[in-house]
């Protein structure tokens, strides 16, 4: 039931970015310096975030990364799903084929795991990066 360091770092970096001017690309070194995230680790995370379309890269001397301007409502859930392999607490929530006990239709614990999973994901999907960025900007000022 854990969100890994990768997920946490991704959210720290993107919250920092969301607290800045929107249209200015941010250098990844600056993000690493400001958040304390190791640069090498951040590069791996940003690779995934770019692949999933959450970040876009701008080339050139004043280049860097931008939160994808085409996606104004990126949620924490989008970010966590992009970097974590799997956020379901049990595999049988994915599909019937994942049930190891052959009791899918009469399994009460699966319903409990679903309620737990929904309890987690309702928060993840209800918070946007923008709201985190705004809260961080306010906190700093």
């Amino acid at each position: 039931m854990k969100i890994s360091t990768k997920g946490r770092y991704a959210l720290e970096a993107l919250t920092y970015m969301a607290s800045l001017e929107k249209d200015t690309p941010v250098n990844i070194r600056e993000i690493a310096d400001q958040t304390g995230i190791p640069l090498k680790y951040l590069e791996q995370i940003f690779f995934r975030l770019r692949k999933s379309g959450i970040l876009v890269a701008k080339r050139g001397p004043s280049g860097g990364f931008l939160l994808n301007p085409a996606l104004p409502q990126i949620t924490v859930g989008d970010v966590v799903r992009a970097v974590e392999t799997d956020i379901k607490p049990v595999v049988c929530l994915k599909s019937r084929e994942h049930c190891e006990s052959g009791i899918y239709d009469t399994c009460v614990t699966r319903l409990l795991w679903k309620r737990i999973s929904d309890a987690v994901e309702s928060v993840l999907d209800g918070v946007t990066l923008q709201s985190l960025g705004d809260a961080y900007k306010e906190k700093k000022s």
Binding site: R8, R115, V120, S122, L124, V127, L132, Y136
Partner: peptide
């Protein structure tokens, strides 16, 4: 400060939600 913000806005509400269930 960033980690504190995420704790307040995300991790604590999630843990409270799970605990309620």
């Amino acid at each position: 400060p960033l980690q504190a913000l995420l704790r307040q806005q995300l991790w604590e509400p999630i843990n409270a939600n799970v605990k309620e269930v």
